[in-house]
Simulated scan of single mutants.
Amino acid sequence: MDTFRELIEPHRDELRLHCYRILGSLADAEDVLQETMVAAWQGLDGFAGRSTLRTWLYRIATNRCLNALRAGRRRPAEPLPPFDPPEPSRRGEVTWLEPYPDGPEASYEAKETVELAFVAALQRLPPRQAAILVLRDVLGFSTAEVAEMLDTSATAVKGALQRARATVRQRPAVTAEPPALARRFAEAFTAGDVDGLVSLLTDDAWLNMPPAPHEYHGRAAIAEFFTVFFDWCGARRFRLVPTCANAQPAFGCYLAQPGEPVAYPAGLLVLSPRDERLGAVTWFLHEGLLARFGLPSEVS
């Protein structure tokens, strides 16, 4: 067992990130990672060394992810808002999306392949296309290696990769200074300053709130949502604690009731800078999320 740990541990974090990219959910990625470790332990004697250990582990992890998706994705229950929100621009389908805490594993690949927009785009692909795109373009495995991992032909891999690339186009480069944008966002948000928030957005910005399906597109729609929301908040006050998620600026969000000195968790806000503004704000409403980011259970 000790020898097994010594072999496997150097790959654990990058395998977790790999599972997260394909599944979009950190909780599901953790579960599949554990299945991968068990399968690797049970199959270690049969590892013939025809490939590297890392390639062998990625084969197990990828196929476990695909098995999990074939078995049916766990969709979180839609939360009921405590106020009457405006009609959304659309109802999103990727309600299982979760943020990923920044860590050493993120240094294995380019920042753009960890960002929320890329992970969300992968969720909209057929699972095998998503897996092939990640294995080839993110991790750099050869066409032959990917074909062997997925028990398919090189021709099939090339075709799936071409279709996936056409769907997941490269995002615009970030030209803003994320710390400055994040600071201005925090000031406007905690002050309930709708005009200040909207001034930071691109014209085509999105506001998303997984696991709620409500999505708001454009400055006017987002302004309408925040106007209604801050009116509902009344004398309640927000406090934001800075962190990072998916290689992007983020805040642990806490809400204090009127007159109360202690604020309690109200989700995680992840900002997506683009074109010197914010191209998206994703407000994750999952319970228990802040603990995964090492954030406190309350702030005062």
Rank of each mutant, 00 (worst) to 15 (best):
V94S: 10
T155Q: 15
G24C: 02
L33F: 04
A164Y: 00
A110V: 05
A106K: 15
E215H: 01
F251Y: 10
A130I: 05
L290P: 02
Q257N: 13
V270L: 05
T113N: 14
S300K: 14
G279P: 02
A280I: 08
T152G: 00
A280Y: 06
P213K: 07
I8A: 08
A144Q: 08
L161C: 00
P172C: 11
G279W: 03
L122I: 05
A182H: 04
R75T: 14
W232F: 13
A120Q: 10
P178N: 09
L289W: 01
A120D: 15
L255Q: 03
P211S: 00
A120F: 02
L15K: 04
R169S: 13
V157H: 06
E6V: 00
P265A: 07
A121M: 07
P127G: 00
N63W: 08
P210C: 06
A280K: 03
W206S: 09
F230H: 08
L150Y: 06
D45T: 13
A40W: 03
R165W: 01
E215W: 00
Q162N: 15
G103C: 11
G92N: 01
G49V: 04
L26N: 08
F118C: 07
V281L: 12
P242W: 01
H18L: 10
R239T: 08
V114T: 14
R91P: 04
P261F: 11
W206A: 12
G140D: 08
F226P: 00
L23W: 08
H214Q: 15
P296V: 01
L17K: 13
F230P: 04
T175I: 07
F189W: 09
T113S: 15
H286S: 07
L125I: 02
E187A: 09
T95P: 08
F83D: 05
A280T: 06
L122P: 05
T227W: 09
S272A: 15
A191F: 02
A154Y: 07
V241M: 10
G252Q: 01
E115K: 12
W96H: 12
S107D: 15
L197D: 00
L133S: 05
G103V: 13
